[in-house]
Amino acid sequence: MMLGSDMLGDHVLQIPLCDRWQIYHRLQELMIPCSCPPDGSLRVQVNSYLTAILVRSTVMQFLAPRQELLDWLERCWSY
Rank of each mutant, 00 (worst) to 15 (best):
V12T: 11
M31D: 15
P37D: 00
V44S: 05
Q28Y: 07
L17T: 12
H25C: 15
C18A: 13
P33V: 05
P33L: 06
Y24K: 15
L30Y: 14
C34G: 10
M31S: 12
M7E: 15
V12W: 07
R20C: 00
C36V: 14
Q28P: 11
I32K: 03
P37L: 00
I15Q: 07
L42K: 04
R43V: 07
C34Q: 05
S41W: 04
L17S: 09
Q45A: 03
L42W: 02
G9N: 01
I23Y: 04
I32C: 09
Q45S: 10
R26N: 06
V12C: 06
D6P: 12
Q45H: 13
M31G: 11
L8D: 02
P37N: 00
L42Y: 01
C18T: 04
R43K: 05
S41L: 06
R20L: 01
D19A: 14
V44F: 03
S35N: 08
V44R: 06
M7P: 07
L30A: 14
P33G: 04
S5N: 12
P33A: 15
P33R: 06
L17Y: 01
I15H: 03
M7Q: 10
G9Q: 01
Q28A: 10
R20K: 04
E29T: 09
C34T: 03
P38G: 10
V44H: 04
P33H: 12
Y24C: 11
D6I: 08
V12N: 10
W21K: 05
V12L: 11
V12E: 06
Q28L: 13
Q45W: 04
R20N: 03
H25M: 12
Q22D: 12
C18K: 01
P16M: 01
P38V: 06
D10A: 09
P16D: 00
M7S: 14
R20E: 00
S41V: 03
L13R: 01
D6C: 08
M31V: 11
M7I: 03
L30R: 11
C18P: 05
S5D: 15
W21A: 07
P37V: 02
S5A: 13
E29S: 12
L42G: 11
I32S: 11
S5Q: 15
P33C: 10
I23R: 00
L27C: 08
R26W: 05
E29G: 15
P37R: 01
C36G: 09
G9F: 05
C36E: 10
I23Q: 02
Q14S: 15
R43G: 04
I23T: 00
W21R: 05
Q22M: 11
H11Q: 06
G9L: 00
L17K: 11
L13K: 03
V12S: 09
R20A: 00
Q28T: 15
L8R: 06
H25Q: 12
M7W: 07
G9R: 01
R26L: 10
S35I: 03
L8H: 05
